[in-house]
């Protein structure tokens, strides 16, 4: 970026100042912390306990393991897509983005700050959810390096795609107040049809097709590979984990998200023209 370097100003110092400000702002907003980090954990414990282990998706693997893998995917989406789509819309309305745009801060530093908060929040959420999964629902951690690598791939690609889409989607609601009402339903619908609350292959095929367009379905599928025994692939639609497809679709969404951001991102709200 051409505006990165200003003679005696350190880009690293600017970015770390932004990240610190973002983290303080996030963790001081109790509603945001509850909604982004605790709510997925509560859902995990609640649904995990209700579904219990009465049903098995394949012999020896209870549904609750399938559900935990899906909730990890949902929590990645919450800490990136929902978090950013809502907070950036509100910050734009409050005038923060316009104020920053009037300073010599390189534009990219704003996004670095957002990526910083998404990284911290998503890692903390994952740690909470994995701990709860292992403690209460006999979740097995990835068995070998390849399973860990796929977990890492889904984390990096999925989080990047959802982060970019969240930044881009923040320009869609008319104003900051409308943002939660627009963003949350999208996330909830996707969770129902993408293999979080129900087994994906049990969902009607037209809904499967709809879900397969979006990243969450592929994130959950990659996470199931990482956390479930290999035999569980019998419950996948194609009978296979399709890891190449997971990587491909998430990569396409990264490109879509990036182009969408570049075309639609606004530093001022609509009333301000």
């Amino acid at each position: 970026m051409s505006d990165v370097a200003t003679s005696s100003v350190s880009y690293v110092a600017i970015c770390s100042a932004r990240i610190r400000a973002e983290l303080k702002s996030f963790f001081r907003q109790r509603e945001a912390v509850v909604f982004t980090m605790l709510f997925p954990l509560i859902l995990l414990v609640l649904f995990g306990s209700i579904f219990g282990s009465q049903d098995e998706i394949v012999p020896g693997t209870p549904f609750v393991n399938y559900f935990v893998a899906g909730m990890l995917g949902a929590s990645l989406m919450t800490s990136s897509f929902q978090n950013l789509a809502i907070t950036i819309a509100m910050e734009r309305d409050a005038g923060l983005l316009k104020r920053l745009r009037g300073t010599p801060m390189p534009k990219s530093a704003f996004f670095i700050g957002k990526i910083g908060v998404v990284m911290v929040v998503s890692l903390a959420s994952l740690a909470l959810m994995l701990t709860a999964g292992v403690l209460f629902f006999d979740l097995n951690l990835p068995v070998d390096a390849k399973h860990w690598a796929v977990f890492a791939m889904v984390f990096v690609l999925g989080l990047t795609a959802c982060t970019l889409c969240g930044i881009a989607f923040s320009s869609v609601p008319k104003n900051g107040q409308a943002a939660p009402a627009m963003v949350s339903p999208i996330a909830i619908v996707l969770q129902f049809i993408s293999g979080v609350f129900f087994v994906y292959s049990d969902v009607p095929s037209w809904l499967q097709n709809a879900a397969a367009i979006f990243p969450l379905k592929w994130m959950c599928q990659g996470l199931r590979y990482a956390f479930l025994p290999d035999a569980a692939k019998a419950r996948e639609v194609t009978g296979d984990w399709e890891l190449d497809r997971v990587a491909l679709v998430l990569s396409i969404w990264i490109i879509v998200g990036l182009v969408w951001c570049l075309r639609s991102f606004r530093w001022r709200n609509r009333a301000d023209g």
Binding site: S8, V9, A17, A21, T103, M105
Partner: peptide
């Protein structure tokens, strides 16, 4: 102070 410190990082002097 936190707001001022954050924005101070953007300026050379």
């Amino acid at each position: 102070v936190e707001s001022l410190a954050t924005f101070a990082a953007f300026y050379p002097h």
